[in-house]
Simulated scan of single mutants.
Amino acid sequence: MIRVLVVDDQALVRGGFRTILDSEDGIEVVGEAENGEEAIAQVAELRPDVVCMDVQMPGMDGLEATRRITASAGDAASRPAVLVLTTFNREDYLFSALEAGASGFLLKNSSPEQLIEAVQVVARGDALLSPDVTRRVIEAVAARPGVGARAVDAAGPGAGDAADRGATGETGRVSRTDPTPELATLTDREREVLEFLAEGLSNAEIAERMWVGEATVKTHVSKVLMKLGLRDRVHAVVYAYENGVVRPSA
C-alpha cells in the first residue's frame, strides 16, 4: 500500500486529490497539510511513502518543505518521495524544486490517471517528468548562458550549421569530441539511454526503442545515474543538456 500525504493550501484541491488517489487500489491518502510547516510535521508523524507537494503556499512554501523533507536525518530509503504538482507560473520554481530533491513534476491539469501513475512511479523509486514538464526543462536549460555554445562546441566544427539546416523544433543529438571524464565512463548503450532520458522517455518507451526488456533499461538507467553521480532521471535531463550530450534544435 502506497501511503500518500497531500499538501496544498486549498482545501478543495486537497479533497480532489484525495478522492482520485483513494479510488485506486494500492494507494491510501493518510493525511493532508495546508503549508510547508504542517507537511514536515505530518511526514514525521505519518511516515508517508509519497508527498504530493504544492509550491505556492502561505508560510513555508513547498520548495523549502521539499528541501527539508529530502534532507531529513535517517536512512534515505525511509524518506518519502516528493511529487511536485505545479501550474508552471514560474520556471525558477521548477529548478529550485529539482535542487531541493523532488522526484517528479506534474501539471495540476493532468488527468486523474496521470496523477495515479505519477504517485506509483515515484513510490517505487523512479523519477518522473511529464512530457510538458520535460519540454520546459529543456527550454529553460537551453536558454542558460553558454549551454547552447557548449553543445555546439561539443559537437565539433560545423555542428551549428547542421543544426540550422535541420531545425525542426525537436531534440537533436550531439556527438561529443571531448567527453567529460564522467561521460567517458559510459558504455555506448548507457550513452544511448542517457540520450533517451533527455528526450523525456519512460523506461517502457526506451525499451521499445532499444528492443530490450524494461528490466534491462532500468539496469542501464541505474548505471548511468551512478557513473554520473546523479540523483535521478530528472537530473539526467539537465545534465545531458548542460554537457552537450543532446541539444534542442533551433
Rank of each mutant, 00 (worst) to 15 (best):
E34G: 11
L12G: 03
I20S: 08
L21Q: 04
A33D: 04
L21T: 07
A39C: 13
A33P: 06
F17P: 13
A33E: 04
D25E: 15
R14L: 06
R18V: 10
L12Y: 04
L21I: 07
R14V: 13
L12Q: 10
Q10Y: 07
N35H: 05
V13H: 06
R14N: 12
G36Q: 10
N35A: 03
A39V: 11
E38K: 14
L21G: 03
Q10A: 12
E28Q: 14
A33V: 08
R18I: 08
E38Y: 00
G36E: 09
T19F: 10
L21W: 04
G15I: 02
S23C: 01
I27F: 03
G16V: 05
L21V: 06
T19A: 14
V30H: 13
F17V: 12
G15E: 08
E32S: 09
F17S: 05
T19N: 10
F17Y: 15
G15Y: 00
V30I: 15
E28F: 04
I20W: 12
N35G: 01
E34S: 15
E32R: 05
F17H: 15
N35Q: 05
G15V: 02
I20C: 11
L12K: 07
E28T: 15
D25A: 13
G31M: 01
E38D: 10
D25Y: 04
E34V: 15
T19D: 10
I27K: 02
I20H: 09
F17E: 05
A11W: 00
E38L: 11
E32D: 12
G26H: 03
A33H: 01
E28R: 15
S23V: 02
N35F: 00
E37K: 11
I20N: 08
V13P: 14
E38V: 10
A39H: 08
E28W: 05
G31Y: 00
E34H: 14
E32P: 08
V30L: 12
D25Q: 10
Q10E: 09
L12F: 09
E24H: 08
G36C: 13
A33F: 00
I27E: 01
I20D: 06
D25W: 03
L12W: 01
G26Q: 05
G15A: 07
G31C: 02
G31P: 08
E32K: 04
Q10L: 12
A39P: 11
V30E: 13
G16A: 08
G15F: 00
G26S: 06
E32I: 05
E38M: 13
E34W: 00
A33Q: 05
A39R: 10
R14M: 07
E34I: 14
G15Q: 10
G26F: 06
G31S: 02
E34K: 15
I27P: 04
A11D: 13
L21A: 04
A33N: 07
E24P: 03
N35K: 05
E28M: 11
E24G: 02
G26M: 03
L21K: 06
V13E: 05
A11C: 02
D22I: 03
G36F: 02
T19C: 07
I27T: 04
G26P: 01
F17R: 11
V29M: 08
G36S: 11
D22G: 02
V29K: 09
E28C: 11
G16I: 04
G36M: 11
V29R: 05
